[in-house]
Simulated scan of single mutants.
Amino acid sequence: MHLIVLPGDGIGPEITEATVSVLEAVSDRFGLGLRLEHDIAGHESLKRHGITVRPELLEKVQAADGLVLGPMSTFDYTDESKGGINPSMFFRKKLDLFANVRPARTYPGVPHPAVEPFDLVVVRENTEGFYADRNMESGGSEMLVTPDVCVSMRRITRECCARIARAAFRIAATRSGRVHAVHKANVLKIGDGMFLEECRKAAADFPGVTMDEYIVDAMAAHLVRAPGKFDVIVTTNMFGDILSDLTAELSGSIGLGGSVNAGTGHAMAQAAHGSAPDIAGQDRANPFSLILSAAQLLGWHAERLGSEAFAGAARAIETAVAEAVQAGEATVDVGGRLGTRETGRAVVRRLTA
């Protein structure tokens, strides 16, 4: 498996270094033959090349089997005419990574605000919705009608609703067999109505999976009250963006939330959090989110190939992270006592023992 590794900005190089060490360890243990090719994007690329993502980098990523993307300072990249392309949005769009899959679970040893332990997955549509870069060929999706009136547009298509629904049902079929479709069709009758129609069609094709439906505000309340009730949550882009952060924090820290952006032919591992420039270079950043995201990337590849070796490697990383967290061999934010580098080494030790 050929992976392109882009360290990113802020804490990105530190957590990427820890993640690479984990990938190398699991590759040796399971005979994966991973080939990791390092390159740059973001501020380092802007400094060297005058652009955050070079055209030839896209070609390189398209030719590879996957991408590991470190956190990017996305708020810094506002003017594409000056080279400020948002790498995260760029790769999601160019590679058609339509499914953002965000597991969230509680870990023994990590204090959390949830009223009970839980283990769920948010499956978020990733290519349309209110996000301007994903619903307009050029220009913005907001219009200032008067100085005091703004109109924002959202694109929803049947094709994108259908494929995210089916992705969620496929995931649920490997878990407890339950899908929860989250919407606002009581108000957004056409767009979210279309989304629900496609979820119901997918349900008919997966008779072993049950589906229920929740209005998004009710789902937020239910997640706070009883997250253990839920398994695979599927929803549109903006609702999924919000609910996946909520569930990650309910688990104890967004630093424990993995995230893979997956399409038909490409996938990208990406930490659920940002670049945290205020702690960059201090050996304090939690690397688990990117490590768990890399495990998801291996799992995605395993499903494509039908490979037990890659599936086993993904499970081994997840187990090693859980054991390290429970042992307190983690960063301070999740109750540990180690720095970034030593936290990565704690996972590697478990993979090589």
Rank of each mutant, 00 (worst) to 15 (best):
M143L: 15
A167H: 10
M136I: 04
E125H: 08
R163D: 00
V122N: 08
N126Y: 03
R155S: 11
A165L: 05
A165F: 00
A162W: 03
G129R: 00
L188G: 06
A167Y: 12
S141N: 13
V115T: 15
N135E: 08
V149E: 05
Y131S: 05
T157C: 02
C160I: 13
T157H: 00
R154Y: 01
V122L: 02
P111C: 08
F130P: 07
H180L: 07
K189W: 00
D119Y: 10
P117N: 14
C161L: 08
D148E: 14
G140W: 02
T127G: 03
M143V: 15
D133L: 13
I156L: 14
R175H: 03
R124Q: 01
N126A: 03
T157S: 10
L120V: 07
E116K: 07
L144F: 13
H183G: 04
R134Y: 12
A181N: 12
V121T: 10
E159P: 03
R178G: 05
V145D: 03
A165T: 08
C160Q: 14
F118Y: 08
V145I: 13
A132P: 01
K184H: 06
I164V: 15
P117Y: 11
A173I: 08
G129L: 04
M136A: 11
T157Q: 00
V179Q: 00
F130Y: 14
V123E: 00
C150I: 12
N126W: 03
D133P: 13
V121W: 04
H183Q: 06
T174V: 09
D133E: 15
K189E: 10
R134C: 11
R170V: 15
V145N: 01
A165Q: 06
A162E: 11
V182A: 09
S138C: 10
E142N: 11
S141K: 04
T157M: 07
T127K: 01
G139H: 01
A114C: 04
P113T: 02
H112W: 06
S176G: 12
R154S: 14
H180D: 11
P147F: 01
S141P: 00
M143F: 15
P111N: 12
R124V: 10
H180G: 06
R175G: 08
E128S: 08
V123P: 03
E137F: 09
C161P: 03
P117D: 15
C161V: 06
C160R: 14
P113M: 08
A167F: 11
P113Q: 07
V182H: 03
E159T: 13
R175V: 08
R158P: 01
F118H: 07
M136F: 10
P113K: 05
S141I: 00
A167T: 12
T157A: 00
C160V: 14
L188P: 10
V123A: 11
I164P: 03
C160L: 14
A168F: 07
C161D: 10
R170Q: 14
A185G: 11
G129Y: 05
N186C: 06
I171R: 06
F118D: 11
E125Q: 12
V182T: 09
K189Q: 15
E142T: 14
V149N: 01
V121H: 04
